[in-house]
C-alpha cells in the first residue's frame, strides 16, 4: 500500500525524460495547441532575452566601449581573459560565496519549510518568514552593514559585552562569508516558501500511509518527503545557484569588492568593467564565460536530480 502510493506520485515526472522513440503517428502530437499556449511567452522570450543574449555574445568578440560602435576583434577578449588574474580570483571568490550561501540557505530553508508544514498553519508565522524578501537587496545590505559595523554596530557591541574581541565582519578574512550570511537571511524565507509549496503538493494520503506503516517522522522525511520533493528541490537548487552566481548589490553597497579583491565576485567585476571602465566587449566576454559555466552547472544539476528519480522507481 505504502510503496504503491510512493511510486504512483512521481510517475508523471517520467514525462520530463524525452520520449526516446515517439510513435510515428503521433509525431506532431499536441503541437498546434502547444504553439498557442507557448506563443505569448515565446514572444516575450525572443524579444527581451534571446535578442539581447545574441547581441551580447557578438559584443564579446568586439572592442566596444558602449558609446562608439563596436570593432570586431575575434577571440582577443577571451585570450585576455584567461591571463587575467582578477578573473580567476573573481571565480574563486564567487565559488566560495556560492558554496557558503547555498549550503546555509538550503539547509535552513528545508528545515524551515518542514517545520512550517508540520507545526503550524499560522499565516503570521508564514508571513514573518517571508518578511526579509520584501526588503530590497540594497537596503538589506545597508541595514546589516550598520549592525555589523566594527566600531558602531550593535552586533559588535554585544560581542564585546560578552567579553570577546570585536570582529571585522567585512574584512579580508570574513567578508565573503558575511555577505553570504546576509543573503541567506534575505532569501531563506523565499526558498522555504518554494519548498513549502512543494510540500503542499504531496498528497496527505502518502503521510497517512506512512503513519499506518509505523514510520517515524524522521524516516518519513527521508524516505517519503524528500524523494517526492525532488522536482521542487531541483528547481530550488538550480535557481539558488544561478541567483548566487549573480550576487552583486550586496557587494556593491558594502565592501565594493575589497579589501584587496577579497569580495570581488564575478558579477561585480563584470559590472565594473562595463559601466565604470567602459570595457563592454570584455564585460560581454566575461558574461559569456559565466553563462556557459552556469549552463553547465544547471545541466549537471538537472541530470543528477533526474538520475535520482529513476533510482527511486527501481527500488
Amino acid at each position: 500500500m505504502t510503496s504503491d502510493t510512493v511510486r504512483a506520485a512521481p510517475r508523471p515526472t517520467a514525462g520530463t525524460v524525452p520520449d526516446k522513440a515517439p510513435p510515428r503517428r503521433r509525431r506532431l502530437g499536441d503541437l498546434p495547441i502547444a504553439i498557442v499556449f507557448v506563443l505569448p511567452a515565446a514572444i516575450g522570450f525572443a524579444v527581451f532575452y534571446v535578442w539581447p543574449a545574441i547581441r551580447g555574445a557578438y559584443l564579446s568578440l568586439t572592442k566596444y566601449n558602449v558609446l562608439t560602435p563596436p570593432r570586431f576583434i575575434g577571440l582577443e577578449n577571451y585570450r585576455q581573459l584567461f591571463g587575467d588574474h582578477l578573473f580567476w580570483n573573481a571565480l574563486k571568490v564567487t565559488a566560495e560565496y556560492v558554496v557558503l550561501n547555498i549550503g546555509t540557505q538550503t539547509v535552513i530553508s528545508m528545515v524551515l519549510a518542514v517545520l512550517l508544514h508540520r507545526l503550524t498553519r499560522s499565516m503570521v508565522v508564514r508571513g514573518i518568514v517571508l518578511l526579509p524578501y520584501l526588503v530590497a537587496n540594497v537596503v538589506v545590505a545597508l541595514v546589516w552593514f550598520w549592525m555589523l559595523d566594527f566600531q558602531l554596530g550593535v552586533v559588535n557591541q554585544v560581542i564585546e559585552w560578552l567579553g570577546f574581541d570585536r570582529v571585522a565582519f567585512f574584512g579580508a578574512d570574513l567578508g565573503i562569508a558575511t555577505i553570504a550570511m546576509i543573503n541567506t537571511w534575505r532569501h531563506m524565507g523565499y526558498t522555504a516558501l518554494l519548498i513549502f509549496a512543494g510540500l503542499l503538493m504531496i498528497p496527505p494520503s502518502v503521510y497517512e500511509a506512512a503513519a499506518i506503516d509505523g514510520a517515524s517522522e524522521w524516516r518519513t522525511f527521508w524516505r517519503v518527503t524528500l524523494p517526492l520533493l525532488r522536482p521542487v528541490m531541483a528547481l530550488v537548487m538550480v535557481l539558488s545557484v544561478i541567483g548566487s552566481f549573480q550576487v552583486f548589490d550586496t557587494v556593491a553597497v558594502t565592501t565594493g569588492g575589497g579589501p584587496i579583491n577579497a569580495t570581488r565576485v564575478i558579477y561585480f567585476y563584470i559590472y565594473d568593467m562595463a559601466f565604470n571602465r567602459f570595457n563592454f566587449g570584455y564585460a560581454a566576454a566575461l558574461s559569456s564565460v559565466l553563462f556557459v559555466l552556469l549552463a553547465g552547472i544547471a545541466y549537471l544539476q538537472l541530470r543528477l536530480s533526474r538520475a535520482g528519480e529513476s533510482d527511486l522507481k527501481g527500488a
Binding site: 520530463t16 524525452p18 520520449d19 515517439p22 503521433r26 509525431r27 506532431l28 502530437g29 499536441d30 503541437l31 495547441i33 502547444a34 499556449f37 507557448v38 511567452a41 522570450f45 532575452y49 534571446v50 539581447p52 543574449a53 547581441r55 551580447g56 538550480v238 535557481l239 544561478i242 549573480q246 558579477y267 563584470i270 559590472y271 562595463a274 564585460a283 560581454a284 558574461s287 559565466l290 553563462f291 552556469l294 549552463a295 544547471a298
Partner: peptide, 23 residues
Amino acid sequence: LRWPGREAVFTIFVTALMVPPIF
C-alpha cells in the same frame, strides 16, 4: 502536452535564466 522539440525549446527557455541582466 506532447510535441516534438518540447525538451529542446524548454531547455532554451531555462538557459535564459543564466543570461546576465547586464546584457
